[in-house]
Write a protein that binds this DNA or RNA. Structure first.
Lengths: 248, 248
DNA sequence: CATATTTTCGCAGGAAATTGCAATATTATG
DNA sequence: CATAATATTGCAATTTCCTGCGAAAATATG
């Protein structure tokens, strides 16, 4: 067995279990614990995990913002993303907002899908770089380390010039009267431009975001064409539907 | 059996098995392990696979997957990066070109360094997102999947508006007469703007890039203020020094 | 067709990397 | 503080890698 295969195994196990133990790995890989320890040492030096006594834990590139949230409503988000897939067709230009729901969506892109994706999100851009058919355009600007998106005037300027078929909106609070809101002024401004630059706006929201509001307004709720949510969210769908919004 | 047939077999096996071993290939192809090793050497140089101890693994489409990053520990690049560090001071605005040499440099940033870094490189942006003090500005534009940088008009426009203290140039060929050249037209145009937007230009080049040229011109060699290179590169320094360029 | 040149390939021996083991230090925990 | 678990270090056995060399095959050249 090649050393690289062990690395692969360790990293995969780390991703699913969120921790690895010397003893377990020694068993799984049929090598001594010393070798496991040395493997972890190498991986740690490359920033791929963090060694701790007895084993190792994952190293989120961005401490506790993005990668933490990603596992919280994993199933819900995947369900939402699966519904969203049916809106995508070859040749479209898509604006993909940042956030874990939209990230879950691009992870589900079938390899044959041909799209142009415009996004301010670095994780989404990275994910799509592995995709053979998708053209990726990253909006420029200052990086917000907590949410791993670019923001600011440059971002807005690039989006303004754009005309997209669909905009998928990520993390936002939805409220029938307050509209779509976010926690950051700059990001809210960016989202606002996204909405304006797309023919159709689809919000991906877990139920815990529905009926809530945050300080900065993105747009009116009627700017949304479709809201895709989870089981619990559907129970709250009635008032949105009355406004003519498609909730699925 | 022709060499090309062996290549074919190796690549096919690599695709199905996700790894190949010297011993296995030697058996399958009925040639010595030395020959297998030389074959893998050729394939690796053409970027078709990655040699590892005992065999080879596929060239992962995922850009900075573990196996790629791990081999970045080339001493030359780290030595170059270490020299470059001394040019950095708190408060500066830096343009950081893409490439493995510049990537090696940002990996060495001490945690206390306070900079604003403007870059078209996604790996560099990702690396710096983990840095507590560095402000990161990513230039927007279409992503070139092979080199992991943004390029195009939007990139140029963002860089044009900028005034940076230093620009660190990455992968480029240097030639005393032809100047600085690169393999891609768009990227060369972007690099050209980088050079113009910085007060001082520092090239990070391994010796194998010195005295060579590629199709697209970035700028004259005299636009470089300093060239940082490895041991072997210093031996080729004389003609550059005669032009008033600091070579270290 | 004969000869020269280049390419390919296997082999040998020394260099380097990998791995497991044992001895020793360090840390956690009651 | 004592004891057990875990880490580190040095070392040796093994495997793998690299280099130079020569033989054979392929190719070029007159």
């Amino acid at each position: 067995m090649l050393k690289e295969e062990r690395f692969d195994y360790i990293l995969k196990k780390l991703q699913t279990d969120h921790k690895v133990l010397h003893t377990e790995l020694s068993n799984d890989l049929q090598v001594s614990e010393d070798t496991v320890r040395r493997d972890l040492e190498v991986l740690a030096q490359n920033g791929l995990l963090i060694k701790v006594r007895g084993g190792a834990i994952p190293h989120s590139p961005n401490p506790f913002a993005f990668n933490e949230r990603i596992n919280i409503h994993e199933d819900d988000k995947r369900a939402i993303a699966t519904k969203a897939l049916s809106f995508l067709h070859n040749g479209q230009t898509i604006i993909m907002d940042g956030g874990t729901s939209t990230y879950a969506l691009v992870k589900l892109f079938p390899p044959s899908l041909q799209l142009t994706v415009v996004t301010p999100s670095i994780p989404i851009a990275m994910q799509l770089m592995e995709h053979p058919e998708v053209e990726v355009i990253l909006t420029g600007g200052r990086i917000f380390k907590s949410s791993q998106v670019t923001s600011g005037l440059d971002t807005i300027r690039m989006l303004e010039k754009l005309r997209a078929d669909i905009c998928f909106m990520g993390v936002c609070s939805l409220h029938t009267e307050v509209g779509v809101t976010g926690p950051d002024m700059d990001e809210a401004a960016v989202k606002n431009v996204m909405v304006q630059s797309a023919n159709k706006v689809i919000a991906l929201v877990t139920s815990d975001k529905m009926g809530t509001a945050e300080p900065y307004k993105v747009c009116n709720i009627t700017a949304m064409d479709t809201i895709i949510t989870d089981e619990a969210g559907l129970a709250l769908a009635a008032p949105y539907r009355q406004l003519g919004i498609n909730v699925i």
